[in-house]
Each structure stands twice: as structure tokens, then as C-alpha cells.
Write a protein that binds this DNA or RNA. Structure first.
Lengths: 241, 241
DNA sequence: ATATACAAGATTTTCGAAAATCCTATTTAC
DNA sequence: GTAAATAGGATTTTCGAAAATCTTGTATAT
């Protein structure tokens, strides 16, 4: 449960050795998180000199991180002109959500067919923790701790959706889902604060319905709910832009 | 039409600027091709000193290329212990083919719905060129030119399958399809020579049936044929291992 | 005999400087 | 006045050396 609150993600392309050891690994994670949460603004040029100061690393680890991030579509490389934070746009968001539906509905079908007790238990545990955190934030939306509380919320939200499909049996589907999750997360981050603190939408109810359908092994219902959940979030975010 | 025969692939993550200019780009492409065709054996450790000699580049561009390749699952990074060529295994092949079916059948459905005249024309052109090359190789399977002829075949095969889904309208589905194509290509390469030169299987007929279904805009039939095509190839490759 | 500690060599990772390239502003030519 | 040429500065890209880490083999202790 002790999670580094500054970066709620597990490494997308898990390194074999124990934990992150190299500077490049660390820069990669910190930078990914900075992009997802918008600390590095979309479209912003990433000057090496500036990154060097920000992350306290030389050119090599920075470049290493940048190249990995490029593979996840979080940064774009302009040959001979450096890197920029991947821009956001309604078209890109729509494609990311569409693709996420393709991947995750298939993964969910497989998980429902193959999942065991441990899978069910993890879903319930994750759903509970997510629900608790949502309630906590809605209750007292104070300024100081809010940021940390939202980060924790994001971590639990991530864990819940990962738990749903974890038993799908396909490393590739899971990896693609991870990448797409992060991409769509960039769009959600802005909208998240408002939605949760002001109770503009009750995603909690949607999550609960999803859990019920999944545990009943009703693949069609679960897939329909998941797809609707994604599309609703997309519409909500689009409405804020 | 003038294609560098040593590397039939377009860059997976297309760089914005004109053509490849940096050393890292060039190393990346050459190395990717070397891995796909097996010149760098699966599981083989990639020692920097050795790569430096092979590609005539310093540590920086090599590392850059390695990191990008990692994102496409063509190499694996062992933290603090360098890189290895991603190993091949029946399990990985099955997952790659399965995932490819998920992505490409969806993309094909969309392309059939949205494709215009240019899309149809490109499919016919690609299918024709592929068929011609297949016949050419089956006719005179001489030793010297065979390698180059097979590379050309691979290039045309790639172009055909890309053409089918090109009109799907989703950059992400196309990129994922590209990545998975390369992964599965690693398994086909070994089997390809034997299959084509000995006429053990007539993929040409499968391709033709696919084109017919697609141009008739019969999505269900086309998707079924594509899925069967992928699975058959998988079985054939598995049979040779 | 087995296990632990240590040293030597190999390899990766990181750094900062040097080279190459791009961008911008100014000048020059027409 | 407009366009091409050019110089200066900024930035990326590449290199090779230095630092850090891992691996292997040998010696020492139990």
C-alpha cells in the first residue's frame, strides 16, 4: 500500500531487474508523470538544457527517457529539432478512447471467461478502495491535501480498471491498454478535479454496475457498460474543453 | 517504387522532418531489420562494443535505437545489464497473432465502411504486385537473387496488408498493427522461404479471396478470411518449429 | 567440502565537450 | 521593395572518457 505518491504508475515496459536503478529509468517515470498531469504542457518544446536542470541528469539519461516516451505517444520527436510534449486535440482524444474500447472490451471478455477467485477478489478490493477515496474527496475538498488526494484517487482508479482485465491472459493487450490508459488520462486530469469535487457525475455508480456484471460473468452487459463508461467520460471531458 | 531493398519498412513512428537524417534513426532502422530477419538472433545479448563495430556509431545513437526498439518489443532491456534481442516462443507467437487479429479485424471493418476509390485502387495494385512476386519466386528459386527476391516479397506483402486497413481512420490502430506486423514477421521469416519456394501453401489464393470480399464490402466475410489467414500462417510456422 | 569475501576484468551507464544542424536577424543584390 | 545570402547564436546530436555496476574466478574461513 505504500506507494510513491508522486508517480502512481507501474512501469509500462517493466524492466527485468529489481526496481528502478538507473537514472534514465527514474527520469523516464518522473517525466511521464509530469506529462500526464500536465506539469509539462501539451505541445511544449522540451529543451535539453531545461530538462537537465529540472531532472538533474545529463543528456544521455534524458534522451533515453525521451525516446521511450515517444513510443508511448507522450512526446513527439522532430528530427534534428528535438522533442515536444505530444499535443492534445479532440481528434486525438476520440481516437484514443475508441482504441481503448477496442482493446479493453476484448480483454474484458477474455478475463470474464478465464478469471479465477483471486481476480474477483482483486476487483472487489480495488473497487472498494476507489469508492472510499471518491467519497473522501467529495466530503472535504480542501485545497492543500486535495492534490495528494486526487493523485491517490488516480492511482486507485488506475488499479480498478487494470484489475478488471488483468486475467485476460494476453501480455500485449494489457500493455496496449496501459499505454492507452495513460494517453486518455491526460485528457481526464483536467476534468477530474471539477467532476469529483463538484459531484457533476457519479462514476462510482458506473463502476459498481460494472463490478456486478463482471462478477455475474455477463460478458455482454459488462462490455456494454465499459464502453459506455469510456464514452461518457470522453463526452464529459470534451464538454469542458 | 525505388525502395531501399535492405529495409522494406516505413518508419513505425514516423519522424516529422524530411527523411531520416540522424545517425540514431539510421541505426534504429537497420537494427530493426536485422532483428526481424534474424541476423541478430533471438535472445542474443546486444553488447554495445559489438554494435558499435557493426553499425559504426557511438554509444549515444545505439542506446537511442535500442530504447525505441524496446517499445516495439523487439529488444528487451535488463536494467544495468544491457539489452538482448527479444526471444521467440510459441506462447509469444500465439499472443502476437491473437492481438493482431483483434486489431486488424476491427481496422478492416472500419476501412470497409469508410474506404474510397483510392483505397480500393491501392489494394488492387498491392495485391497484383504481391501476386507477381510470388509467381516469380516460385518459378526460378535460384540461390543468389533469392534473398533479394524474398526481401522484395516481404515488402510487397507488407504493403498489401497495410493497404487493406489503411482507410480505417485510426492512427492508433494502424500503429499497433504495424508493431504487431513486425513481431509476427519475425516468426514468418524462417518459414517464408520454404513455403514460397516449395509451394507448400497457396497464400496467394487467400489474398485474392480477401480482396474480393473487401471490394464487395462484405465485412463479415472479409474479417473471417483475414482471421483465418492469420491463424493458418501461425499454424504453418508452428509446424516448422 | 561448502560457503563467503574479495579482486580483476568486462560492461553498462553517465557525463560534458565537440561537431553538426537549425533558426533568426541582418545585410546585400536585384 | 523583395528576395536571396550570410553570419551569429541557440540547440540538437554524437563522441569518447570516466564512473558505476555487474560477473567471474580465486582465495580464505568455517
Amino acid at each position: 500500500m505504500t506507494q510513491p505518491l508522486t508517480s502512481p504508475y507501474a512501469p509500462a515496459a517493466a524492466n527485468d531487474a529489481a526496481g528502478k536503478v538507473t537514472l534514465a529509468d527514474s527520469v523516464y517515470e518522473r517525466m511521464r508523470w509530469d506529462i500526464v498531469r500536465g506539469a509539462l504542457a501539451p505541445g511544449m518544446p522540451l529543451r535539453l538544457e531545461q530538462l537537465k536542470a529540472r531532472y538533474g541528469a545529463g543528456f544521455s539519461p534524458l534522451r533515453e527517457a525521451l525516446n521511450r516516451l515517444q513510443g508511448e505517444r507522450l512526446v513527439q520527436s522532430l528530427s534534428l529539432r528535438g522533442f515536444i510534449v505530444a499535443p492534445l486535440s479532440p481528434e486525438e482524444m476520440a481516437d484514443a478512447i475508441d482504441s481503448r474500447i477496442v482493446i479493453e472490451t476484448e480483454a474484458l471478455r477474455r478475463a470474464i471467461q478465464r478469471g479465477d477467485d483471486a481476480w474477483e477478489a482483486e476487483i472487489l478490493a480495488a473497487a472498494h478502495q476507489l469508492s472510499r477515496q471518491t467519497g473522501r474527496i467529495a466530503a472535504d475538498a480542501s485545497g492543500e491535501d486535495l492534490d495528494q488526494a486526487l493523485i491517490e484517487l488516480e492511482f486507485r482508479h488506475r488499479r480498478f480498471h487494470r484489475a478488471l482485465i488483468a486475467a485476460c491472459g494476453s501480455p500485449r493487450l494489457l500493455q496496449m491498454a496501459d499505454t492507452l490508459y495513460m494517453e486518455t488520462e491526460r485528457y481526464r486530469v483536467t476534468a477530474l478535479t471539477r467532476a469529483v469535487t463538484k459531484g457533476e457525475r457519479n462514476a462510482d455508480a458506473e463502476h459498481k454496475a460494472l463490478v456486478d456484471a463482471v462478477l455475474a460473468r455477463d460478458a455482454e452487459a459488462a462490455v456494454a457498460l465499459l464502453e459506455r463508461h469510456f464514452r461518457d467520460t470522453g463526452r464529459q471531458v470534451a464538454g469542458l474543453v
